[in-house]
Amino acid sequence: MNREFDLEASLDRWMADGPATVSDGFIDAVSDRISRRRQRRARPDLWRQSVMQIGRKQLSLAAGILAVAAAVALVVRPFGFATTPGATPSPAPIVTPSDRATQTTNADPSISTPPSSAAAALPLPAGFTTDLGPGTFMFNRAQPRLVFKLTGAYSGSSDATGFRISRGGFNAEIVVLYDPRIPSRGGSCKRTAGAQAGTTPADVIADLTQQVGLEASQAEPVSIGGLPGVFVDVELSKDAPDACLSHAGQTNMQLLTAGTFTADPATVHLDDNARIRVYVLDAGQGRTIAIAINTHRGTALYVLLADAKPVIESFAFELAP
């Protein structure tokens, strides 16, 4: 085959071959699916009419007001969140994703065009925050950025490598770590970052579950926020040699850390008698993202999973433009 000259003709011929008809029952299947699907109502172009009816002066005035409002928002926003424990934060504004954002996500989850929910989302503040939500938030200190929605009040903390949110104190939490690592191997309780856990979700899960003193469920596939991955439930075995004592005197083991290991939010501890669900997602280009759901109380994990489900389901990973 002379590829310099024949490629296009070869492609023409090659693409002419292929299946020509849908299978039996295809139309019935489509009919069944649409019978269970409601149509969206068309939105009228009200803005067109109103713009035509408004004069140029009014438009200029409106644009000026918007510009001043935007400038005020930029100045005020940095003071809207506390960055240290104990500071008093202002209430987080309620932001709901627009209909268009939902439409974009549902219609085509793979397209890299950011949904408008990202524009409306509040960036997670750095450090400790006592009041998050309800609203739409965005973790944007690492790629791919993560937009998610909270329907209730959470507290949280974040740094450059991930974030932690919890409801009802620190007994139930969702931790997201970019480029997770396995810390303190060999029974040491020293907090060291350790080697990168792996470049694929399967690597990370294998590295995680091979730790002595850990019991893990069978890994299962999952897809969260548009990224594929796997998940396991893990707990300490009765004779875990790697376990340490927490500051509260509780036996625990450091399970995962994030890349830079610079702050508390970047660690997931597995407590004695606790069970954690760990999702590891494939972020592409040899990068992974871990999501841990931790109750610190083994029997309550599945209650928290139900509670965390809407948050996890709202996750949307996207590459920033």
Binding site: V30, R33, Q39, R43
Partner: peptide, 10 residues
């Protein structure tokens, strides 16, 4: 086709 049905009014 399901998406088309859903979004057709638009």
């Amino acid at each position: 086709l399901e998406i088309a049905w859903r979004d057709l009014p638009g």
